[in-house]
């Protein structure tokens, strides 16, 4: 894999950039996400989080981390659809 390999295609985050975050001492997945921006685009990490978590595990020698905190909605939903829904209980 070359350094310019795209790990997060939605936000154009390359292998190089994730390695730079790890080299800078960010050894947990939430920090790597916030340092590089991976997983914040269209797919919300569905395509890239595994690759990033595996890289982190390889570099730190620790067991693979928990996934990044999932952010609802599971799939993109149009505001017009959300506006037509009733209110839900807290949660």
């Amino acid at each position: 894999m070359t350094a310019k390999a795209m790990l997060c295609r939605c936000e154009d985050v390359t292998l190089d950039e994730v390695m730079e975050a790890l080299d800078a001492g960010h050894h947990d997945i939430e920090s790597v996400k916030r340092y590089t921006g991976f997983g914040t685009g269209w797919c919300q990490g569905k395509q890239c989080v595994v690759a990033c978590a595996r890289l982190l595990a390889q570099v730190t020698g620790k067991a693979p981390e928990l996934p990044i905190t999932p952010r609802p909605p599971l799939h993109p939903v149009a505001l017009g659809v959300l506006a037509s829904l009733g209110d839900d209980e807290e949660g």
Binding site: T40, W42, P76, A78, L79, G80, A83, L85
Partner: peptide, 18 residues
């Protein structure tokens, strides 16, 4: 979503990512 679509009706078709 209700407040935003009221303020900017053309936002109805735009999707929330997170």
């Amino acid at each position: 979503a209700r407040a935003l679509v009221r303020a900017i009706p053309t936002m109805a078709g735009v999707r929330v990512l997170r």
